[in-house]
Amino acid sequence: MRLKSEIFVSALVRRVFANGDFAVVERKGAADAGAIAIRQVLRDGQECLFMPAPQFFSAESGEDRLFEQRLDRVPAADVAARLEKEIRFDGDLWVVVLETESVEGLFAVASDGV
């Protein structure tokens, strides 16, 4: 059984705060099964964007929710433009912003080896 989106997001925000960093829900999506986009804001103003990985990778990894990095260290405007397109496609999308230098241990990220 898959964890509800709102519970996953709430737990993610708590983990980030527990690490001494900052997180905010920028956009709420469908409470039960909305897809989740994660914006990582770095100290230098650059951003990374993580989106749900294709189902194939989730099945292979055994993770309930698996993300893939779609944008890496780009200007905030690039991430905003990409999210705008994603929201037009999926109106139930959650957007969570994390101000942290590392997402390691916060959520599962698909690697090239998966």
Rank of each mutant, 00 (worst) to 15 (best):
L3W: 04
A53Q: 07
L83Y: 04
F67V: 05
L98E: 13
E104I: 05
R43N: 12
A33N: 12
F56V: 14
A30T: 04
D72H: 07
L66F: 09
Q55R: 09
T100Q: 01
V25D: 11
G29V: 10
F107W: 02
L42V: 04
Q55K: 07
A110S: 12
Q69L: 11
A33T: 10
L42W: 09
G62I: 10
L71G: 07
L49R: 02
V114A: 09
Q46L: 14
D64L: 11
F56N: 05
V24L: 12
G62N: 07
E99G: 09
V97C: 12
V24W: 00
L93G: 05
I7N: 01
V41H: 05
A18C: 00
D32C: 01
P54C: 06
V114E: 12
E26W: 09
A31W: 00
L83G: 03
R70I: 11
Q40C: 05
R15G: 02
V13W: 08
I87S: 01
L98S: 09
V109Q: 01
V109M: 06
V103M: 00
V95A: 11
D92A: 14
L3F: 04
R15F: 08
L42C: 05
L83F: 03
R82G: 05
I7D: 04
S10F: 02
E26D: 15
I87M: 05
E60A: 15
L83D: 12
S10Y: 05
P54L: 04
D112Y: 01
G29S: 07
E99L: 05
F67P: 04
D44C: 03
S102K: 04
A11E: 15
E68Y: 13
L106T: 11
F17C: 06
V103P: 00
V79M: 01
V95M: 09
I87E: 05
E60Y: 02
G29I: 11
A108Q: 08
V95C: 13
E84S: 14
K4Y: 08
L3G: 02
A59H: 05
L71F: 01
C48I: 02
S58D: 07
L98N: 11
A23Y: 02
E104P: 00
G20Q: 07
G34D: 07
A81S: 12
E101S: 10
F50L: 10
F56M: 12
F57A: 14
V97S: 15
L98G: 08
L42N: 13
V16R: 00
D32Y: 00
G29E: 10
A80P: 03
Q46F: 02
K28G: 07
A76P: 02
D72S: 12
G91C: 00
C48D: 15
L12Q: 09
E104N: 09
V109S: 04
Q40K: 08
F17Q: 14
R27D: 11
A81R: 12
A81P: 04
Q40A: 08
S111W: 01
N19P: 00
A35V: 00
E60L: 15
L3V: 14
S61Q: 03
K28N: 13
D32M: 06
F8I: 06
F67W: 14
V103E: 12
R15C: 09
E60C: 11
D21W: 07
